[in-house]
Write a protein that binds this DNA or RNA. Structure first.
Length: 112
DNA sequence: GCCCTGACTTCAG
DNA sequence: ACTGAAGCCAGGG
């Protein structure tokens, strides 16, 4: 029986950080990965998001690539759910790209 | 039990 | 400045 507080896994580390993303803010895979001490593991962060669908409090829609592009939008149900969620939080999104991404960008290390 | 792919990022030429 | 290739962890076939 694996405890959900098992921080031994890279995935769980990602979940912890993503869950801490404040309302109306977004971050990038590399930012989380780098915060975990694995800047080259950005892919794993994205893959963790894929598994995050099974979790209750993991706002994967607030995690985008370094360009502020909704690369993972395609993995969400519907066609523009991710964009709708972001716009619902006050984040302007045009053509799957976040406007003023640097203004909405939230760095985990910034809070810690 | 082995091989491959995947929501990215960074280094090197 | 641009393009190409490598790296990372985990899950699925």
């Amino acid at each position: 029986m694996v405890d959900k507080a098992d921080q031994s896994g890279f995935f769980n580390q990602v979940y912890e950080v993503v869950k801490l993303i404040p309302y109306g803010r977004v971050t990038s895979y590399g930012a989380v990965a780098k915060y975990l001490g694995a800047a080259k593991s950005a892919r794993i962060v994205g893959y963790a998001m894929n598994a995050s669908h099974n979790l209750p409090d993991v706002p994967a829609h607030r995690v985008v690539n370094r360009n502020g592009l909704l690369t993972g939008k395609h993995h969400f149900p519907g066609s523009n759910l991710m964009q709708q969620l972001l716009e619902n939080e006050g984040v302007k999104v045009v053509e799957n790209q976040i406007q003023d991404f640097d203004k909405h960008f939230w760095d985990p290390a910034q809070e810690f």
